[in-house]
Design a binder for these strands. Sequence first.
DNA 1: CGTACTGTTCGATGATTATCGACGTGTTCG
DNA 2: CGAACACGTCGATAATCATCGAACAGTACG
Lengths: 110, 110
Amino acid sequence: MLIEEMHPATAELRLPKVLAALADPARLLTVRALHRAGESACTRLQQAAGLTISRSTFSHHQRVLREAGVIQVRVRGSERILSLRRDDLDACFPGLLDAVLGTAPEHIGS
Amino acid sequence: MLIEEMHPATAELRLPKVLAALADPARLLTVRALHRAGESACTRLQQAAGLTISRSTFSHHQRVLREAGVIQVRVRGSERILSLRRDDLDACFPGLLDAVLGTAPEHIGS
DNA sequence: CGTACTGTTCGATGATTATCGACGTGTTCG
DNA sequence: CGAACACGTCGATAATCATCGAACAGTACG
């Protein structure tokens, strides 16, 4: 059974949903790691982000980011390659992603 | 009984907490209305933001914004005057507030 | 003092969410 | 084909959260 990967159109992006997606520490680290890596498969990205959560939890976070329009997923073989929707985010929320990516580490952690 | 109003220091501001505070539609509208008004008391601000929620709920939102470091509260007579902590936010998260305030209305609503 | 106004605090409640393990599905490779 | 790998989905659980009304506290004003 092929399940269509949900990717909201650019015009459908909503700020509260994007902010909620970025507000979770695990997802925020994921996005920042994804920015450094350019693009990456799930397991590799989870390691790059330094997340020790279970795979099912990471899958959940990946879904939240995708449904908010923050990341994009494409399939390559048995892997899912994740990448930032940089252009779409910049078009809808100019400066937001840059602000999130540019924030100093001391203002990220607890 | 004087209750100390909780205002985190600038160095204590954390991005996930700020994003979570801004992620709620009511709070997002509040912040944007506060930007337009400059500063405002609770009831007036709630009206300016077009929020039809109860006063206790608005009080809750105001607390979340304050504890995240997004807004500032000072007492004037029987009123509480709310204002944005613009300089502190700009210092910790350059461009973030501008992005949130500058987002077009069609990407705010549902 | 008593009334009106402004706003907070206190449960209570229903909704959302982060997390996990178990299982299923598609892919690659021997 | 069969094993190993990469992920997603399901159901459950515990925690967090948005919301409300009722009660409370401080201020202004007659």
